[in-house]
Design a protein around this nucleic acid. Structure first.
Lengths: 239, 239
DNA sequence: ACCTGAACACCGTTCAAGT
DNA sequence: ACCTGAACACCGTTCAAGT
């Protein structure tokens, strides 16, 4: 009687369980064996519903993208894009593993295509040319430099004690000597109180800032009738 | 005599070998055991030079960041940032595994700090406030939406035959029905020849486009004397 | 100081077999 | 149609021992 299971497995149940497990233990902690155990099933049972671990991850990403909102037409195309993108961001924040998983995938599932199509539609309806829309879509996805930018946002170790004034002093001295420019920024960001360096930085603000720089640049290009056949894209922007 | 090894291991040799191995087989193929084998050594020998695999990856990322150029002062701060960022990009492209490895790391090694400091210095010297510099640094690192944007750039399977005209037709029909906006963009990008969809998209151009949108937006904020205490960052940009 | 051997607790995935 | 058992070829990492 211990072998009775009420609901038989299916792809959807497997994916949902995988998402829940990853929410709990991260991608690194997600294994086929552990997922099977969570489902009260032997590891090999999963392979009837998912080809391999890669496909499992693709499916999990689809689940997250399925949570994105695509709100109706707004007044301004920038607001329409912003609404979609911020909704995507909220979904990704709900699943801490999702950002990395998404960025490591390359498969273009229908879910991905549908979302891209929705954003592209807002841009085109807003009067951007297909050419400009194409480049803006790319711009939205480009990470400009090649290293982790979360200098200050990284979650501080909860168990670690807060830095003593002496440690702060030492840190400031080290920064001022070796990384003076970073110190200048840190001081501005924390209004002089370096102890707030961790949680003091509003990630949401930074995200909107980058987004608005891109959207506003695109709006200016649109007004100027920009096309990518122009020799140098920046030349059009410069007054 | 088979046990004689000319040069004893050290941290640097281990990291270099790891980078070379990852260049060859990717991060997924990089294991402590395989790296040890490459070095003609038993797996456990590595642990004298590297605490664990995490630290190995941190070290590998440092090697790549060490390849970034930090050219001397230029005429315009935008050119200074562009030079650094494009050099970083070239280094990352030289090591296909690096982008993902970098984005999954969170450790702030001295190498990372030194590079950030260098970029921050260019911005500050260019007359941006510490406040604006802070946000621009974040903007440069923000990926705006949460999925892999390489819709068209993904390397095509080399072994796969080129699509027949019939397949192209079918693909266009599918796109026009389900993803009409994506079709519009693809047509613009390939000048109507959908068979060029793979290699037809100039990734370098897209990168510079996004970069220039950000840099030019920052320049406009600088001229306007923008500060982040303004209620809505986009308000300043809108004319 | 640097490397080794044996062992532990894990992985993803195969195959043939069960119900 | 769906699940299981046993097995294979891997992992990262420990510990105590060798030279």
């Amino acid at each position: 009687m211990a072998t009775v299971r009420r609901t038989p497995l299916n792809r959807d149940r497997v994916l949902r369980a995988a998402v829940a497990l990853a929410d709990e233990v991260g991608v690194a902690g997600l294994s086929m064996r552990r997922l099977a155990q969570q489902l009260g099933v032997v590891p090999m049972a999963l392979y009837k519903h998912v080809a391999d671990k890669e496909e499992l991850l693709d499916g999990m990403v689809d689940v997250v993208i399925g949570e994105f909102d695509t709100p109706g037409p707004g007044l301004d195309w920038r607001d329409g894009v912003r609404a979609r993108v911020l909704s995507a961001r909220r979904a990704v924040l709900r699943h801490p593993w999702a950002r990395q998983a998404i960025e490591s995938r390359t498969r273009r599932t229908p879910t991905v295509l549908a979302y891209m199509n929705s954003v592209a539609g807002v841009l085109l309806d807003g009067g951007l040319s297909a050419d400009l829309t194409h480049h803006v879509l790319h711009a939205l996805g480009n990470r400009i430099w090649g290293f982790s930018p979360e200098l200050f946002d990284e979650p501080r170790d909860e168990n670690a004690p807060p830095p003593t004034p002496e440690q702060q002093q030492a840190m400031a001295a080290e920064l001022s000597q070796r990384y003076p420019h970073i110190l200048a920024i840190a001081m501005a960001a924390t209004e002089g109180d370096l102890s707030r360096v961790g949680p003091g930085c509003d990630e949401e603000f930074e995200f909107r800032f980058a987004l608005d720089l891109l959207l506003d640049g695109a709006e200016r290009l649109r007004r100027g009738g920009w096309t990518s056949t122009a020799a140098d894209p920046i030349a059009t922007l410069r007054d």
